[in-house]
Simulated scan of single mutants.
Amino acid sequence: MINYHFRKATLPEIAPIWEILQRAIRRRKEDGSNQWQDGYPDPAAVQKDIGKGEGFVLVEGETISGYSAVVINYEPAYDQIEGNWLTNADFVIPINLCGRN
């Protein structure tokens, strides 16, 4: 049985997280997506996520298999949305969600 664990990332884990993100950035480009082709995310963004307690890793045994920034109740892009939300309740935004292939 494979043992997965989802936990907060730590600063010493930036290098393996960045490796995962680089693969995801290349994959998006190969798939024709413009997302993540402007320099974001980068290692500084990962460091900021972790510093704010929003960076999480998926660990398989001792290996980091995935990364996500999980942001609660804030996404700057949502400031541009016209109209109203169906509710004013809390919401969660998974950002930089990617894993090893």
Score class of each variant (00 low, 15 high):
Gln37Pro: 02
Gln47Cys: 07
Ala45Thr: 05
Gln22Phe: 07
Glu30Val: 06
Ile20Val: 08
Gln47Ala: 09
Ile14Tyr: 05
Gln37Trp: 03
Gly39Ala: 12
Ala15Asp: 10
Asp42Thr: 01
Gln35Asp: 06
Tyr40Ala: 04
Glu30Leu: 12
Arg28Val: 05
Pro43Cys: 08
Gly32Trp: 13
Ile25Lys: 00
Ala15Ser: 14
Trp18Ile: 01
Gln47Lys: 08
Pro12Lys: 06
Ile20Gln: 01
Ala44Gln: 09
Arg28Cys: 07
Trp36Gln: 02
Gly32Cys: 08
Arg23Thr: 05
Arg27Leu: 14
Gln35Gly: 06
Arg23Pro: 02
Gln35Glu: 09
Asp38Asn: 15
Val46Asp: 00
Pro12Tyr: 05
Gln37Met: 03
Lys29Asn: 05
Arg27Gln: 06
Tyr40Met: 06
Ala24Ile: 07
Gln22Gly: 06
Arg23Ser: 10
Pro43Ile: 10
Glu13Arg: 10
Lys48Asp: 10
Arg27Asp: 10
Val46Glu: 00
Asp38Tyr: 11
Arg27Pro: 00
Leu21Ile: 13
Gln37Phe: 05
Gly39Glu: 05
Pro16Cys: 15
Glu19His: 02
Asn34Phe: 15
Lys48Gln: 14
Lys29Ala: 15
Pro12Val: 12
Ala15Arg: 09
Pro16Glu: 10
Lys48Glu: 12
Lys29Gly: 07
Gln37Ala: 04
Ala24Trp: 02
Asp38Trp: 07
Ser33Asn: 15
Ile17Val: 14
Ser33Cys: 07
Arg28Gln: 13
Glu13Ala: 15
Ala44His: 04
Pro12Phe: 07
Gly39Met: 05
Ile17Pro: 00
Val46Phe: 02
Glu13Thr: 12
